[in-house]
Structure formats: C-alpha cells, structure tokens
Amino acid sequence: MNPIEQFELQRIGAPYFINGVDVSFTNSALYMLLAAFAAIVLTIGATSRRALVPGRGQALAEVLYEFVANTVRSTAGKEGMRFFPFVFTLFTFILMSNLIGLVPYTFSLSSQIVVTFAFAAFVITLVILYGLYRHGFGFLKLFVPHGVPAPVLVVLIPIEIISFLSRPVSLSVRLFANILAGHITLAVFGGFVVMLLGAGAWAALSPIPILAVVAMYALELLVNCLQAFVFAVLTCVYLNDAIHPGH
C-alpha cells in the first residue's frame, strides 16, 4: 500500500554494466518499447489497408494525424510543418506511454523526471541548433525585444535569457509532476478503501473512496492526454521562436 512503490525502477533479467554505469534492461525500458510498439501498431498497422472508407483503427490514426497537423500549423505556421514528423512522434509516444501507464499494475514512463527532462532538453537543443542554423547570430534577436529603449534593455535581456532557460525546466517538470501527482493520488485513495475494509464497522464507508477513485480516474485520463498535448503544443511554440525570432 505504499503509494510510491509503483514508480520503482526494477531490473528485468541480469544486471549489466558498461564502465560501471548501470545499463541493465529495466521496467522503464520495457514500457518505452511498449509505448513505441503501440504507436507503431496504431499508425502503421491500422493504416496499412489504406481503405477509402476508414475502419475504426484507421479513423483513429487519421484523427490523430489531422489533430497534430492542425496544432503544428496553427502554432508554428506553415514553415513549422517541416517539424511535423518530430512533433507527431513526440506526441504519440508520450500519449501512448501515459495511456499505458493508466492501466493498473503498469509503470508510468512520464513519472520519471529523467525521461521528461531528456525530451525537454532534446527539444530545446533542437530549437537552439535550428535557430542558429537558420538565422546565424540573428537568432540572438530572440533575447532583444524590438521597440524597447536601451536603458530598459539592460534589465530586459537578462530577464529574457532566464525566461528562455526556464523553458526546459517548466516543460519537463509540468509533465512529470502532473503524472506523478495523479498516480500518487489514485494510489492513496485506493489505499483508503483497503484500510476502511480492514477497520470493522468502518467498512460501510468504503464505497466513498471508491467513488472518488472513479471520478479521479476520469480526471486523470483527461490530464494524461492533455499533458501530452501541452508538451506537443509548447514544442511547436518554441520551434516557432527558432523559425521566427524577434516576433
């Protein structure tokens, strides 16, 4: 009944070290493979028949594609569409791992800050590299808001730089904290049911936390999908900055 036991990393099979670094196959790695596999099944498997009138799986894949394409187009503009494959991959992977993590007895990948920070660091590195490649040092205009007098710039430029550096932090912590908090809450309320059932006459109250768990499960479903979406949208927003700095 320990509510954070579910986030424990466990080795699957023999421990394996490279230069003293533990690279054993863990449950985290297993669920990464599962999420990738689920995304592949959904997008490649379901659309392999290429029916003109889509079946259920194909319709789902098409809705997903259209949804992400519209998001990218509306947040990063037409030019942002060159990053569509990247954003789509990121979104489907996070969505699949979140949805798999909601199944009881599974492991939720996004509850590990290492995983979410790796995503966020990758996104920010991509933004910086693409911005420098596209605009050279003109990319640094991102830190200089136009139409501001010089004395104000002395204060505003450090603020802009801190604000830019805070992006990977906020991106990773948001996803990680929401998933972690959600799963802990569900586990704690589940624990209440067990405790009430074991407390004699108090067992009569046990349906109350069950109802709470059901309601929160619905909310968690929404939050899990939403966080995948927010991650994708903010990736687009940051990529938009790399494509059009100084706007």
């Binding site: 187009r73 947040t75 503009g77 037409k78 903010l234 938009n240 494509i243 706007h247």
Partner: peptide
Amino acid sequence: AEIGGGLP
C-alpha cells in the same frame, strides 16, 4: 496563418 499565433 503564416507564422502561427502561440498557444490556443
């Protein structure tokens, strides 16, 4: 439409 409008 050209440059995108940020978060909805």
